[in-house]
């Protein structure tokens, strides 16, 4: 087991190295470097000043040398300084990581907590009204463009009904839990709603299979109640593929959460990344890339282990 972990971590690090190298190279090709952005609306920098700043930022070295420098710095814990904000990248990310984790974590949790039971119930009574309704609900979640949902939700709940605030993570001066919750409701619902779709469908099909299997009928024959049958056997086997599905969707989740963050002005990593790409803020893009890659890879490793624990049929190679 330890050996397995060790191998996985090593391979994860290799993956991170490749991802960051590829993205760094791509970034160097992006037209309109940060320097041009700085030259701004006046182009008022003289040639000498331009060259001086270029040298300061290290932009006159070849790509591989710059990447190597970045890598060396990262290993020392120095993520560089954002071109745009002038603040150490590590600091910016540390500040904005929490809100994203909160948003995504809560969203995913609700998606699972609600999606699982709905899917199981649908599989339990296939063809029923409940089944059809939940299928439709799932379809809606999977197909509706996220930003339309965001904007219409804000319109109805914030604007028309004045139930929730329309932006940000908290009202200034109010650090209470209640205030946080009310700001969370809308964005979390949207994230949960989109993710629930897949989960419901997956749960339903996984459970359908399982509920047919003979050993469950044996269990029923033995006298176990319906609930016990579902919970003990159905859930146990269905949870594993569901978890796989949920975990494997984390990169996509981060991406779509970015859109939600942007619209709600939620101070998270996704919105930060979108701005960073717009501003060609290379140090920041690299920092966020690394963090996202780490999170995803850790999640995958965690999932692998959890999957192994949950489903005794899997063994480690």
């Amino acid at each position: 087991m330890v050996r397995y972990l060790y191998e996985r971590i090593l391979s994860a690090m290799l993956t991170m190295f490749i991802v960051t190298a590829i993205i760094y190279t791509l970034l160097s090709l992006v037209q309109g470097s940060a320097l041009d952005v700085m030259g701004g609306s006046g182009g008022e920098m003289s040639h000498a000043d331009y060259e001086a700043i270029r040298h300061n930022l290290g932009l006159d070295l070849p790509v591989w040398a710059r990447y190597g420098q970045w890598l060396r710095n990262v290993l020392r814990g120095d993520f560089g300084v954002s071109y745009r904000y002038g603040v150490p990248v590590g600091e910016v990310i540390a500040q904005r990581f929490g809100p994203s984790a909160l948003l995504i974590g809560t969203g995913l949790a609700f998606a699972v907590l609600l999606g699982l039971p709905i899917g199981i119930m649908a599989a339990h009574r296939p063809g029923s009204l409940w089944d059809r309704l939940s299928s439709f609900f799932a379809l809606a979640g999977m197909t509706a463009p996220r930003f339309i949902i965001c904007i219409t939700f804000i319109y109805f709940f914030s604007f028309k009904l004045r139930l929730t605030p329309s932006m940000g993570m908290h009202t200034v001066g109010n650090a209470s839990f209640g205030d946080l919750v009310i700001h969370l409701i809308l964005p979390v619902s949207i994230i949960a709603f989109s993710k629930m779709g897949y989960l419901i469908k997956q749960t339903r099909s996984a459970c359908l299979e399982v509920f047919q299997e003979d050993y469950l009928n044996t269990a029923r024959a033995k006298g176990l109640s319906e609930t016990e049958v579902i919970l003990k056997h159905g859930l146990r086997t269905a949870v594993a593929p569901i978890l796989t599905q949920a975990m494997a969707e984390i990169p996509e989740l981060v991406g779509s959460a970015a859109i939600v963050e942007k619209i709600f002005g939620w101070p998270g990593i996704g919105a930060l990344m979108i701005e960073a790409i717009r501003n060609r803020d290379v140090p920041l893009i690299m920092g966020v890339t690394l963090v996202i890659a780490v999170v995803v890879l850790l999640a995958n490793i965690f999932l692998d282990i959890a999957y192994g624990l949950l489903d005794p049929r899997v063994s480690y190679r």
């Binding site: 490749i18 990169p251 996509e252 991406g255 970015a258 996704g270």
Partner: peptide, 13 residues
Amino acid sequence: VFMSFPSVLLSMI
């Protein structure tokens, strides 16, 4: 490697 990164962000880049 490809799947470990949000496709939206990578597409933007």
